[in-house]
Computed example of a mutant assay.
Amino acid sequence: MNILISLSLCLLFSASEKQLDILRELYEEGRFREAQQKLKEIAPSSSHAAEILLYKGLLAQDARKSITHFQSIIKDYPQSKHRIRALFLLSQYHFLKKSYKKAIAAFKQIVKSETETPYSGQTCIWIALSYEALNDTTRSMAWYMKVNSADSISYTIAHKALSNLKELKSIYSIQIGSFQNKESASSLTETYSDKGYRTWLAITKQKGIKYYKVLIGEFDNKEKARGFSKLFKQKEDIQFWIVKIRKLK
């Protein structure tokens, strides 16, 4: 009887492993609908629980369900080899939701992992991008510099990003308007340029929407910008803000 039970378990494990192999192949080939169907056919298995959760997350059509599956792997299977991938995907989700501080905290958990992972170089780049989004250039550059040259693709990306950052400088300016319509921004720019001010346009994006900011002057520090703003306020009846801008040197 014991022999029959053992044999049955071996056959069940073998069948489950074959089903997982098919699932992996379907996913890698981008045949996601077939992969979803195959996932439904795979019986629950304690030995593959983390991997099954991973594919449930990858194939879920609802982002919230995906995140729930990834969080389950991180919490319930801390020793699983799939934990790092789940953590990486969760970190990317935070970044795409513009929760940059959460993204940084999650990505840093990967960095703290004692084992070298395929995500090491990519993780440093994502952390650098998160700091860049928070306008923290110093930390952003520091993380780009952490990318190991052994990871040639990540190293090339980091090196180029680092070069671009070094070509930027921070200045302060007086913002007198912000428009989605370029013609309106250009009109205001021309009005104050005719008055003798050094007026210029800066293009920014917020939540995917392009804005044209009308700016006056370029100052090395905030104190100089404040000094100019006092004189500007005495002469002009228009609302304005002192803003920090990054532009090419």
Rank of each mutant, 00 (worst) to 15 (best):
E218R: 11
F232L: 04
W200R: 08
K160H: 08
K160M: 12
E236D: 04
K97F: 01
L90F: 06
H48R: 15
A103W: 02
S8L: 15
D21E: 14
A161N: 12
A158P: 04
S173N: 07
K102Q: 14
Y119P: 04
D237M: 02
S130D: 03
F95D: 07
R64C: 02
C124D: 09
I110N: 06
A50S: 12
S72K: 11
E218T: 12
L53P: 01
K244Y: 00
E17H: 14
H94Y: 15
Q234E: 11
L12K: 12
E34C: 07
K222Q: 08
L26C: 03
E223Q: 09
I127C: 04
A225Q: 04
E29P: 03
Q109N: 14
N2V: 12
L87G: 06
D151R: 03
V243F: 04
Q71T: 07
I5Q: 14
A15E: 14
A63L: 08
G217D: 10
V243I: 14
A105V: 13
R83D: 03
G30D: 09
L87S: 11
V111I: 15
F32K: 13
S130N: 06
Q92D: 10
S45M: 09
K38R: 15
L162P: 01
D194K: 15
K169Y: 01
E218M: 13
E28W: 10
T156D: 01
K81W: 00
Y197I: 13
C10R: 11
I125K: 07
Q79T: 10
T138I: 13
S170H: 01
Q206K: 14
S193D: 03
S140Q: 07
Q180A: 05
I110Y: 02
N148I: 05
V214L: 04
S80W: 05
T68I: 07
